[in-house]
Design a binder for these strands. Structure first.
Length: 941
RNA sequence: GCCGGGGUACCCGAGUGGUCAAAGGGGGUGGAUUCAAGCUCCUCUGCAUAUUGCUUCGCAGGUUCGAAUCCUGCCCCCGGCACCA
């Protein structure tokens, strides 16, 4: 084949697909639907390899489902609000809107160049008022039903982004976006009541196909814990202190109560006493530190006594009230009942401030209630030393239950479920997002903008860099109160952009609807998303918000579905090697390649690392497409690793994949040059193709894309090579299978497949718009044909190995070989043993059966019994199911080999090959001893 | 500390009781083709050996006729949560 083959006109095919409207998702009631989605991308100006990988995976799935006759909804759009555009506008001038549009145009072009099969008609962009209008509408609905509210609360403030952040958006005390420090600040902010759906978000995880680690991540964030809220009275006061605990069973061991310094009762407890100053000092220290730093410094436990006492809810005993820097105001009730005997932190605290430690559990049944304590015993245990009757001896849940019941009777406590997840802080003090549709009126308060006035559009006349940008537009600010008509001001905060990505998948189902966010019936038709593909980094933010929104919108009556996404696939990272210093343990930029470590001077090794600009180990998709074409890039990216595994970029492997593409380019032409010459191998080729298609379907159904590509682009080629090697070259066979092969190929390399499709006489239209039928299952005859051929390959492989040794013994290259097929009795023995075991017989019990077989009568009985134990028994377990079937079948080894006689001789470079049955008159080799069923002995001469 | 995911040959990576000395690819080897290179095709790529023998799937034990696979303990890597009551 010539290397100057005309390259595939990828852009031409893309144009034709578009002209034909091939990927428009329309509803046909007689077809099943499939919703394939990739995570809403932020429109940076350039497509990177992560995008390429993400979309190559999604596109393969979408294309396969289309082949299978599904109505496939496969849309794309842009998460186009957000700070990068705003920051770019500030640093380089210009307006976020223009920058965003420019970036979108550029990345769209690059995505299109890959030939993904999107329904571009449905393209969304968050910053389109026709889209964000619905964010605003939802928000006003949430205000009505109480899901959205404004609170004055300590919040996370990112100084460099000059905006607040939601809890999930603070990673290790730093901003998820810019990695800048996050401080604590008290502000009035808008929240969505995420914990309202806590239980449903938790339970729903068990009904959807998310990967285990994502489920675990989400459960960590939701942070469900079961316990009790318990009321302690305050001596000399009408007030109660409510504590939250997961260990009500240790209540009798509570020897003090600790409050967060910011606890609402704190000030009144110490006001005007000698303890006030100390409390104030702790309060000041704690309230300015960000929560993260506070938790980090918690090993420096500090406590201040309040001078007051709490009243134990069941025993009325007085216990001191302390303030502790380690108690977090926003978790639970901001107050802790301290049980030093059974909690490590309380134990340390009690030791430090000489507070009594009272054992109320023992860790062994009937343990010693008066045993001393060297450390906190925090496991579940058996209750002891209870001041009230009926508790001693109870264990675990039973003990907790009894305690809760007692508290409930006394009216001093109740069982509760606590969540770590907090309301979603959705307001941002930035410009490039959805304006929060609220009007602040002095007399009416925060009033939602009426539906007919939506959308509240972003004004263009704002000034950046002077606080909240929307606050700089007078025209925007001034508005009359919709309720009382008096002069009022607009809210100047915008919404978190995660709001946009929380329901975009619903909008796609009915993207052109201007009357409502989406028609319920249409959304219900397409939803859920059947296959959702994206990066793991969204496991706790986007994927929680989107699940929350789906439930919230469902409860507004807008959809019927509970969970937005069913199957979630988190694609692995695209890595490339970068210099690495073993002794310093650091990865360095590729600019250090070839030089010693700049820190320690050692020689640098290399290590695979995530592609990043800072390491300089990025690969530009644009360049690769330019060099090799989109198909090659797609093939490489799908074949290099499983979708979920990290993959290493390799230029040599890419090159190898390109060779495959070049080789495949003229495949139909080559096959169509075959003569119309039937051969005994045709049946085998038919069977093989059938088998491959089944395997391909199976791989695609389970999203094992790597395996699917391996079949379509590698194994079938090898099969054809084998077919030709064995003398097959029948154009009828080629005509039979080319169309279906093209369809398989189209899943990952659609442009090449279209070239093929166009060159095949029997096909018309586009392969990308064609339907693929499932082939009939393999017949028994076909299975035997495959087995016989496999048998020849196995025999050849074995013969090659032996040849090496034989050559040494002969002192020269052998010129002929005799294959000694195992004598009939061995096969009979194998058949008997296999059927015995098939019926559930234990291998060790086969000996008596064997002894009664006709073959084992006579003088060779002893030899046969020995053969069984030494040779046959181990082998019986080694045969696979196919081999077992072959042994049980009528396949005659000697005739299969004889028929392939000439072929085997040629393969082994021998002049002559003969086949004999072991122990027969023709067998003069004396070597039949080592022959086994399916494994003849080979004797070279 | 807790929770998830991992550790397979030179590299990447399949593999969840026998088909396993272990797929496939990369890299390497030898051969065919070629004036030559490339492309393509074939062979080999743990050690041994006239033929299913020995050692090997993080380490150490165990279950089984049989373990990369199941169980127990340990080591290491990745991700998440964390003095959360």
């Amino acid at each position: 084949m010539s290397a100057e083959t005309k390259p595939v006109d990828e852009i031409g095919w893309q144009r034709q697909w578009e002209e034909a409207g091939l990927f428009h998702a329309d509803i046909h009631q007689d077809r099943p639907k499939f919703y394939c989605l990739e995570m809403y991308p932020y429109p940076s100006g350039k497509m990177h390899m992560g995008h390429v990988r993400n979309y190559s995976i999604g596109d393969a799935v979408a294309r396969f489902k289309r082949l299978m006759g599904y109505d496939v909804l496969y849309p794309i759009g842009f998460d186009s609000f957000g700070m990068p555009a705003e920051n770019a506008a500030m640093s380089e001038g210009g307006h976020p809107h223009d920058i965003t549009e420019r970036n979108m145009a550029s990345i769209t072009e690059q995505i299109k160049r890959m030939g993904f099969s999107y329904d571009w008609r449905r393209t969304l962009k968050s910053h389109d008022p026709r889209y964000y209008k619905w964010n605003q509408w939802f928000f006003t609905k949430f205000m009505e039903n109480g899901l959205a509210s404004r609170e004055f609360a300590p919040v996370n403030w990112c100084t460099s982004c000059s905006t607040v952040l939601a809890n999930e958006q603070v990673k290790a005390g730093r901003c998820w976006r810019c990695n800048g420090p996050v401080a604590q600040k008290e502000m009035s902010q808008w929240f969505l009541n995420l914990p309202f759906y806590g239980q449903e978000l938790h339970d729903g995880l068990d009904t959807i196909g998310f990967p285990e680690h994502v489920k675990s991540l989400q459960k960590d964030w939701l942070g469900r814990s079961e316990g009790a809220n318990i009321l302690f009275g305050v001596e000399g006061s009408e007030e109660d202190i409510e504590v939250y605990t997961t260990r009500p069973d240790t209540l009798f061991g509570s020897t003090f109560v600790t409050l967060a310094p910011e606890h609402p009762l704190a000030e009144s407890l110490v006001s005007g006493t000698e303890h006030e100053a100390a409390w104030k000092e702790l309060y000041d220290e704690v309230s300015v530190t960000a929560e993260f730093d506070r938790i980090k410094n918690m090993n420096k436990k500090k406590g201040v006594f309040s001078g007051r006492f709490a009243i134990h809810p069941l025993t009325a005993e007085l216990v001191p009230i302390w303030f502790g820097n380690f108690v977090i105001a926003s978790y639970g009730t901001g107050a802790v009942m301290a049980v030093p005997a059974h909690d490590e932190r309380d134990y340390d605290f009690a030791e430090k401030y000489q507070i009594p430690i009272k054992r109320v559990l023992v860790m062994e049944k009937n343990g010693d209630p008066s045993a001393g304590m060297k450390k906190a015993e925090t496991e579940l245990g058996w209750m002891v030393n209870s001041p009230l009757d009926g508790f001693d001896g109870l264990y675990g849940d039973e003990a907790k239950d009894a305690m809760c019941t007692a508290l409930e009777h006394a009216g001093r406590g109740r069982r509760t479920v606590n969540w770590k997840i907090r309301p979603w802080l959705v307001s941002r003090q930035r410009y490039w997002g959805t304006p929060i549709p609220v009007i602040h009126c002095e007399s009416c308060g925060a009033v939602p903008v009426p539906e007919q006035d939506l959308p509240v559009e972003l004004p263009r006349d704002v000034v950046f860099g002077h606080g909240n940008p929307l606050g700089t537009s007078e025209a925007y600010l001034r508005v009359d109160c919709p309720t009382c008509g008096k002069e009022a001001r607009r809210e100047t905060d915008t919404m978190d952009t995660f709001m946009d990505s929380s329901w975009y998948f619903l909008r796609y189902t009915d993207a052109l609807n201007d009357d409502e966010p989406f028609a319920k019936q249409i959304a219900d038709h397409w939803m859920q998303v059947d296959f959702y593909c994206g990066g793991i980094e969204h496991a706790q933010m986007h994927l929680i918000y989107a699940r929350f929104m789906t439930k919230a919108l469902r409860d507004l009556g807008l959809t019927s579905i509970d969970e937005p996404f069913n199957e979630l696939l988190c694609q692995g990272m695209v890595n490339k090697s970068a210099p690495f210093c073993q002794s310093c343990g650091i990865t360095l930029s590729t600019s250090h390649e070839g030089s010693p470590c700049p820190h320690c001077g050692d020689e640098l090794g290399s290590r695979s690392a995530k592609m990043s600009k800072s390491l300089g180990n990025t690969v530009s998709p644009e360049e690769m497409i330019e060099l090799y074409g989109a198909d090659t890039v797609r093939l490489f990216i799908l074949f290099a690793a499983n979708p979920t595994a990290g993959m290493d970029w390799s230029d040599t492997a890419l090159d190898a994949n390109h060779r495959v593409m070049v080789q495949m380019r003229t495949m139909p032409e080559q096959l169509m040059e075959w003569p119309s010459k039937p051969s005994p191998m045709d049946g085998w080729m038919d069977a093989r193709f059938t088998q491959r298609i089944h395997a391909f379907f199976n791989a695609m159904e389970t999203y094992d894309l790597r395996r699917a590509v391996e079949i379509s682009h590698y194994e079938i080629i090898k099969d054809i090579n084998w077919y030709v090697r064995r003398g097959g070259q029948n154009i009828e066979v080629a005509k039979r299978w080319l169309p279906q092969w093209a369809q398989m190929v189209s899943v990952s390399t659609p442009h090449l497949a279209e070239e093929w499709w166009a060159s095949i006489a029997s096909t018309s239209g586009f392969v990308s718009g064609s339907a693929m039928k499932s082939p009939a299952p393999l017949t028994d005859e076909q299975s035997i044909s495959l087995s016989a051929e496999q048998y020849i390959r196995d025999v050849l492989e074995q013969a090659r190995k032996v040849r090496v040794v034989a050559e040494r013994h002969l002192g020269s290259s052998p010129t002929e070989a005799t294959f000694v097929v195992s004598p009939a009795w061995k096969r009979t023995m194998a058949q008997a043993a296999l059927s015995f075991m098939q019926d559930g017989g234990h291998p060790k019990k086969f000996i008596p059966v064997l002894q009664s077989l006709p073959i084992a009568q006579g003088e060779r009985k002893g030899e046969m019994m020995g053969f069984w134990g030494k040779k046959m028994l181990p082998q019986v377990f080694k045969w696979d199911d196919v081999s077992k079937k072959v042994i049980a079948s009528s396949l005659d080894e000697a005739s299969v080999l004889s028929a392939a006689n000439a072929f085997i001789a040629a393969e082994l470079q021998l002049e002559r090959v003969s086949v004999v049955v072991g122990e027969s008159d023709e067998d003069g080799t004396g070597r039949s001893g080592s022959a086994m069923p399916l494994s003849p002995a080979v004797v070279y001469a």
